[in-house]
């Protein structure tokens, strides 16, 4: 790499596989939720946490393949509109471009990126849902899902950091 050059980091398959499997697990978890304060907080936005911290050096084609399949898997698991989650995942990943972000994460940058992801995902979900059902989404449910995912963000970051340190804190996993 030359000084001040605009060369993207080399792409690796293992980080893409690891992140892909994590996305599948997060997709399965969306079936669940927790009842607190007399209302239900669904885990629908948890897969977006995985997308938000997607490894920078993950092979892009392999990543895309996993992200698309994980979206379809999530829709089958939740009994939702087939293609809705895959569209959300693919668009979020495509627009956020993990290969361009900084490593390690800056808290403010991560926060802003998370807000953008939540906004984008809500918009795509609402539009695609309206297209299929001709009814607007339940915004209260969306809001609660965002809240619970946002509360999980620091935990996921700690978990990710712990795992990265166990794997020799390699640049590939950042």
């Amino acid at each position: 790499m030359t000084y001040l050059d605009v060369q993207a980091p080399a792409q690796k398959i293992w980080p893409a596989l690891f992140a892909g499997i994590s996305l599948f697990i997060a997709g399965a978890v969306t079936v669940s939720g927790v009842n607190m304060f007399g209302t239900r907080f669904g885990f629908g936005f948890l897969p977006l946490l995985v997308l938000a911290i997607w490894p920078r050096r993950a092979n892009r084609l392999v990543s895309l393949f996993f992200i698309f399949l994980a979206g379809i898997f999530t829709d089958w698991a939740t009994g939702g509109v087939m293609g809705q989650s895959s569209l959300v995942f693919v668009l979020v990943w495509g627009l956020m471009r993990p290969e361009l972000r900084s490593a390690p994460f800056a808290p403010l940058g991560l926060g802003l990126m998370w807000i953008a992801i939540c906004g984008l995902a809500s918009l795509i979900m609402s539009m695609s849902g309206y297209f299929v059902y001709s009814v607007g989404p339940n915004f209260a449910v969306l809001g609660r899902q965002i809240i619970i995912a946002t509360l999980c963000l620091p935990v996921v970051m700690l978990l990710r950091r712990g795992l990265a340190m166990r794997i020799n804190d390699d640049e590939d996993w950042r």
């Binding site: 792409q11 892009r60 895309l64 809705q84 495509g94 297209f131």
Partner: peptide, 24 residues
């Protein structure tokens, strides 16, 4: 190795179209 260049961009477009088709 350009970010989102070439094949990746094409694959991204294909998956977006495929998802949209499934929804429609």
């Amino acid at each position: 190795e350009r970010p989102n260049g070439g094949i990746t961009r094409f694959a991204l477009l294909v998956t977006i179209l495929l998802s949209s088709l499934l929804i429609s």
